[in-house]
Design a binder for these strands. Sequence first.
DNA 1: TTCCGGTCCA
DNA 2: TGGACTGGAA
Length: 228
Amino acid sequence: MKPSAKLHRIYTRLLTAYGPQRWWPAETAFEVVIGAYLTQNTSWRAVEKSIANLAAAHCLTIDGLRAVPEDELRTLIRPSGYMIRKAAALKAFVAMLDRDHAGRLDLLAAQRTATAREALLRLPGVGPETADAILLYALGHPVAVVDEYLRRVVTRHGMLPAKAKYLEIQSLALSTFAGEPIESHVRHHNEFHALIVEVGKRHCGPTPRCAGCPLAEKALTPPPDAIP
DNA sequence: TTCCGGTCCA
DNA sequence: TGGACTGGAA
């Protein structure tokens, strides 16, 4: 089976097993941006604590984040770790919005996908995954988010070699929905990444735990007599 | 100790 | 390509 077809099968199987994930868990697009920074190599549970701190301090908005002193911002986001570089990175994001987009997230979102992605990648603390997460979940652009979980799934299931790069994996993920209507791509990529994270947390950690995984090969490839 | 919904730099 | 970065939970 072609890798893109196999990945599509994985998508439908995860959707059946887990149901829609309703991502990204946030009230506003800007809160998505903050969460995307804070969750870098950090559990979402820890991020929720920081988000609660920021909400209480009215720092979940652009104006709030611009106004808060950086040392106070560090204290607020302490639960999710890397407080020094993440505080500086969040300040740099607001500075970029102010300098290039009149302090408005929607004007950044209005840029072409490639243009917005380059602008994001120029920022400190934004690598390819954070850039794509912001593009997809905060700005509504149809891009695939590649994380360590997806890398494990596609390599462990033999769709790509173990040394596959970010762009190779992203290219595979993009091709998975190439046959779907263009207007559905954002929705599919949204759901797909969320489902990959879920199966990753449950089964595809550094050491795989395949027992009960909806993607276990037996479950993924049913015997011929089970196919109508 | 290991692991987090990674990024950066030598 | 390997380590440092940060704090907290299991």
